[in-house]
Write a protein that binds this DNA or RNA. Structure first.
Length: 482
RNA sequence: GGCGGGGUCGCCAAGUGGUAAGGCACGGCUCUGCAAAAGCUGCAUCGUCGGUUCGAUUCCGACCCUCGCCUCCA
């Protein structure tokens, strides 16, 4: 079996085969954030999904070269820079740091490369020059440089690979028409935007005068600079398919840098949106939660990650706080099983180091087999969770019946750790018990030992008021946060 | 208006031409001093109407509802 993934280019599920099987790594690009504000969890759904795919590829034995751009020059950023009086680097640096911190909170592996658009101005200019030399880019009256879709098509290239849009049937919004007068054609898009007074100090010298990069060119420049002119995987949110990715293909393939027969990107993968109350989560609607918002409400990053990974990436997913509560409950059941297994395994588990890469079939656990089967199927996480929760039930039942010794428990634990290399939930953070709670626990244990149940129950009530519940077991009592 | 997704148990969410995974919630039982946790167990005929078929939730058609893209956007 091999990994099968939906490819937006062909609108079907296809087996993932590296473009260059002999190459040492798989080229993996995911459109990153525009750093003008904190990202919301809708944005992070895509990044968590990208992380899952990366982890799974690595689990499957591929070496992944993961690139995520940081777009640090753009209209909203320029407005904010002007408004705050900060320099571009100061302003975008803050949100870049916040973004990376949030990525860490959600247990996403750090991309190997995090190129910033402003560090790639020479490459961007070079790309535009190539397009200009091939007659595909043209300079408009306002000094900006545009991409000509007609010229591009005249070169035998296809515009409209990711979406089917009939230009004549499109809705003409004010914004589109208002934007069009400098362009030869409505659908053309800016490669280089001439400096205007509102840009303040944000501009670069170029063969076309002072200005800044257009909307989509930075991704073409950075992805090709780092991964080459043809690479394996390009991901992003579904809203980026058009126009961003379509234009990216046009700019990249318009340069003619690819080997004959090689596409710019072999496999395009798009993640569906997160909804809130049935509507797309977005900055403009104001219906968004940032990772920080949820942390402030007492949720953990891994709980958010779990929720974001609970639905298939190509289905829209409705985010609710109730859903997050349910995710927390489910995750704590998993945590409890893993914790008990760890306890049972004792020192037998200590030497285990989870490893990536394919396990020999003989040593593959049934959990791992089920996970692989599920994820090979276009990353069917629902199926994967079903297997994981079946495993949780088996684990609890086996633990309760005393069926396993330490070594058997360690085996099961090892299986889980391998699977968690992909899911990325990690271990539950160690709980800090306040001294008061521990004192009350002792008091209750003493009362219980003396069979003074009235006192024991009263103390349990006190603990409950403090937000702790008590779980009695054969081996003793433990505290658990309510 | 054009294009593309969805409508499966109270909620979330897989899936299949032969009567439907998993999670959360809920009920019963076991365990427990009582609980909690855990286990066992119960709980859906798949938007509507037609059609194809021995048989459709799964295929086709129509309709209703809903979300997204077409404009910066994960």
């Amino acid at each position: 079996m091999a990994l099968r993934l939906f490819n937006t280019l062909h609108r079907q599920v296809e087996e993932f085969c590296p473009l260059f099987p002999e190459a040492e790594s798989v080229g993996f690009y995911c459109c990153g954030p525009t750093v003008y504000d904190f990202g919301h969890i809708g944005n992070f759904r895509t990044f968590v999904f990208a992380d899952l795919l990366r982890r799974y590829l690595e689990f499957r034995g591929f070496r992944v070269n993961h690139v995520m751009n940081i777009t640090d020059v753009e209209d909203k950023i320029i407005r904010q820079v002007a408004a705050t009086g900060l320099t571009l680097a100061e302003f975008t640096g803050r949100y870049t740091d916040a973004f990376l911190a949030d990525l860490g909170t959600l247990s996403c592996r750090r991309p190997h490369h995090l190129p910033r658009a402003t560090d790639y101005i020479p490459q961007i200019i070079e790309l535009i020059r190539r397009l200009e030399a091939r007659g595909i880019a043209y300079r408009a009256g306002d000094g900006s440089v545009y991409f000509s879709i007609n010229k591009y098509r005249a070169c035998g290239c296809r515009y409209g690979q990711l979406v089917t849009l009939d230009p004549d049937a499109q809705r003409r919004t004010e914004r589109v028409s208002g934007d069009s007068y400098e362009k030869d054609d409505l659908a053309d898009f800016a490669l280089w935007k001439a400096r205007v007074p509102g840009d303040g100090e944000v501009f670069w010298e170029s063969p076309w005068g002072e200005g800044r990069p257009g909307w989509h060119i930075e991704c073409s420049a950075m992805s090709m600079a780092i991964l080459g002119s043809s690479f394996d995987l390009h991901l992003g949110g579904e809203d980026l398919a058009f126009p961003h990715h379509e234009d990216e293909i046009a700019q990249s393939e318009g340069t003619g840098l690819q080997q004959p027969g090689r596409p710019f990107v072999k496999h395009w993968v798009h993640a569906a949106h997160l909804l809130v109350d049935g509507k797309k989560m977005s900055k403009s609607l104001g219906n968004f939660f940032t990772v920080r918002d949820l942390l402030n409400r007492g949720f953990q990053g891994r709980e958010i990650r779990f929720l974001l990974l609970s639905a298939h990436y190509r289905e829209t997913f409705n985010f609710t706080l109730e859903g997050l509560d349910a995710a927390r409950t489910a995750l704590s059941r998993l945590d409890a099983a893993v914790a008990q297994l760890t306890e049972k395994a004792g020192s037998a588990a200590a030497s285990d180091v989870p490893t990536s890469g394919p396990a020999a079939p003989a040593s593959r656990s049934s959990l791992e087999t089920a996970l692989t089967e599920a994820l090979d199927d276009d990353l069917n996480v629902s199926k994967a969770w079903a297997a994981i929760f079946d495993w949780v039930r088996e684990t609890n039942a086996g633990l309760a019946s005393g069926a396993w010794d330490a070594a058997a428990a360690a085996d099961r634990l090892r299986a889980w750790r391998r699977v968690d290399e992909v899911m990325g939930l990690g271990a539950r953070p160690a709980e800090e018990f306040p001294a008061v709670a521990l004192a009350l626990l002792d008091k209750r244990n003493a009362a219980k030992a003396a069979r003074d149940f009235a006192t024991a129950d009263a103390v349990r009530g006190e603990l409950k008021a403090l937000g702790w519940t008590v779980e009695d077991s054969k081996t003793g009592s433990r505290l658990k946060r309510l």
